[in-house]
Simulated scan of single mutants.
Amino acid sequence: MGETAEKHLVYCRVVRDGAVLFLHRSPGVFRAGQWELPGGTVEPGEPHETAAVREVAEETGLTVRIAGERGRHTWMDIGGKDLRIHARVFDVQEDATHDVVLNDGEHDDFTWADPATLDLADHFRA
């Protein structure tokens, strides 16, 4: 039996006027139709904080800096792969207020909302 593979993800909590930025997954992609925080996969050798800032820029066009780590979560792949997912969630601050510009390949909408009002995965709700 092989060793369980590990995948590292990072997500960012961007807040404006008391509301949190959430992105809506496009049809045809993994977890289509779900709301999530901006974020994604940490590249090999990339520091988690660098990956978090990069992912926000790629997915939203926003420039942010890390304010602190909000939490860490680990779970087994929901698709049944022998894969352990490690996610870190960071609080970030925008360098300047800009319009959100989505990467059309992954997300089809965004909202600034109270997390309690959306159907979210446990690691986003926490």
Rank of each mutant, 00 (worst) to 15 (best):
W35I: 00
T111E: 09
V100L: 04
A52Q: 02
R25I: 06
S26K: 15
E49Q: 13
W35P: 00
E94P: 01
V56K: 00
P115W: 03
G68H: 10
K81S: 11
F22E: 02
M76Q: 14
A57V: 03
E49V: 06
L62P: 00
E49D: 08
G39D: 03
T74Y: 04
D104Q: 14
P38C: 07
F30C: 14
M76Y: 11
H98E: 15
E55F: 03
A113T: 04
A87W: 00
G79T: 13
D77W: 01
A52E: 02
A52C: 13
G18P: 03
W35A: 01
D99K: 12
A57S: 12
D108V: 10
E69N: 07
G68K: 08
V64N: 01
E46C: 05
H86A: 03
D114G: 13
D95C: 09
V14H: 03
H107R: 06
A116H: 10
H24Q: 12
A52I: 04
A52H: 01
P115T: 04
P27A: 15
P115F: 04
R88H: 11
D109P: 02
I66R: 02
N103S: 11
R16G: 12
W75Y: 14
E58I: 06
V53N: 01
R70C: 09
R16D: 14
V64K: 01
A87I: 04
E94F: 07
P27T: 14
R31G: 08
P47K: 12
D104S: 14
T41H: 05
W112H: 07
T111K: 06
F30W: 15
G18S: 10
E58G: 04
W75K: 10
A52L: 05
E46Y: 05
L62Y: 02
T41D: 09
